[in-house]
Design a protein around this nucleic acid. Structure first.
Lengths: 265, 265
DNA sequence: GAGCCCAATCGCACACTGTACGAGAGGAAG
DNA sequence: CTTCCTCTCGTACAGTGTGCGATTGGGCTC
């Protein structure tokens, strides 16, 4: 209120100390651009710094590690998965699954980070939270909520990750998806020698007259519907007696489940 | 038969040209040791060469790339997953799932390779082949065979990969799994601020009195049983009219499935 | 205004990476 | 003997993440 020259947050354009410098958001945005354009291996701190007109080590003021930077970039991918409001449990789960798949396919570099870096950023948590809420409202109880959420995300990532690298191989070999797929037949025949069933399966895939990309969509849908069906069957119907069919009812015969006839640990 | 000095494969001990040199199998074995002991980042060609008493670049005679070497190592992991002979479809699928999970957990370094490197080695193909055979015998037909196999493997890898890294974090923080889990509570509380449902879910996990490791086993089993139930329901019963419920029946309402209310592509 | 502080940037250096290249070793074949 | 072919290894190069100290320059208090 004193007689100072007029000043405001809005008149003082640069929010920071310097005129315009790096900011963490700017760095992450530039990293996302570079990753989308040239892939994971092409991202180096020097190259990223150069793109921002800054020195390589300047970035380390805003970001502790390269890994931390990649965590930020990865979490940004999770922001792309949206869920419709006021939808049923199945709709929400389906939306998360398809959205997550789409996000991974749109940013193939993240297959090298999923599972390696922790996914506990705000966007990843928000996605999980929406799924948890949907499962809870649908009647899942206790740890079953977590089991269902985990199953949907596990299936989705497990399906999307190899598909992303498969798409990368196709596009790198040039031509349409179907052409590239057909060109691979002799190589596959050599690999699958001694496994006639595998080979037959692959030929079904290519000779079906179906576009390989939509074939993968159908495959994803098939497994997703099966999983959601199975989860739905284990869901206690809301309105029934609460705590019925509750926590940790193991499905099969084994009480301490471990691999039947399988490697240790 | 001529009057040469006696010679045989067994007298000439070294099978190769040199007395004893590197061999591809030897290199892969040493790489597996190093990976199991020190992890993926610790494997460098120089270190691996030193372990074998050889120069770093000597390895490149037997192996084209570091990536190719890692492909060989990764395929060796798939060899660990065994399947019981003469088992039902569900037993085989369960054995593959648990075995694959066990193999990944036993070799945590492979989470950084799954999805990045192609998995088309002989052991990976053999595993797929066994699963394909089981699905085929159980009545699945056409592309549904591939869909079912893909779904089981996708779920398994998608569940095992984050669990492997989660186990790594626990063991790196020292102490028992439950202690480590409890120590993380304040950190989780900070992260999950604004997501009360998520937080409640996590606390259920820790306060359940269940060992975290067996809790994850139960979680894996829950999703696996749900998935197999769902797949089983879509399986045409053998003995029925063939080609019934055949190829590519899309599950839901969408014919060209793409994310409902989701990012492009 | 002068002086200071401190957030921010940068250059340099270090240890280390994958691997291309060419020289060399040494057994087998003529 | 010579010639060849398989295999090994030293050197070198371009590139990596990042620790450290020097430097800069805008905003603050006198």
């Amino acid at each position: 209120m004193s007689a100072k020259p007029f000043t405001s947050v809005w008149t003082r354009e640069p929010k920071g100390r310097r005129e315009q410098g790096l900011s963490r958001d700017q760095i992450v945005r530039a990293a996302l651009e570079l990753l989308d354009e040239e892939g994971l291996n092409a991202l180096s701190m020097r190259k990223l710094g150069a793109r921002l007109g800054a020195g390589a080590t300047s970035l380390y003021w805003h970001v502790a590690n390269k890994d931390e930077l990649l965590e930020l970039a990865l979490d940004d991918v999770y922001r792309e998965v949206l869920t419709p409001a006021g939808a049923s449990w199945r709709e929400t789960a389906g939306a998360v699954a398809w959205g997550l798949r789409g996000a991974v396919l749109a940013h193939p570099w993240c297959v090298g980070l999923i599972g390696v870096l922790p996914s506990i950023g705000p966007n990843a948590l928000a996605m999980s939270d929406r799924l948890v809420k949907a499962c809870k409202e649908a009647g899942f109880q206790g740890m079953d909520i977590d089991f269902a959420v985990g199953a949907v995300i596990a299936y989705t990532l497990g399906a999307a990750v190899p598909e992303a690298t498969w798409r990368g191989m196709l596009s790198r070999s040039g031509g349409s998806a179907r052409e590239a797929q057909n060109e691979m037949i002799p190589m596959i025949e050599g690999l699958a020698a001694g496994h006639p069933d595998l080979l037959e399966r692959y030929k079904d895939y290519t000779s079906g007259g179906l576009d390989p990309l939509t074939a993968r969509q159908i495959a994803f849908d098939y497994g997703l519907v099966a999983l959601l069906d199975g989860l739905d069957a284990r869901r206690p119907r809301p309105g029934a007696t609460p705590d019925e069919g509750g926590t940790a009812r193991v499905g099969g015969e084994r009480v301490t489940p471990d691999a039947p006839g399988t490697a240790p640990q």
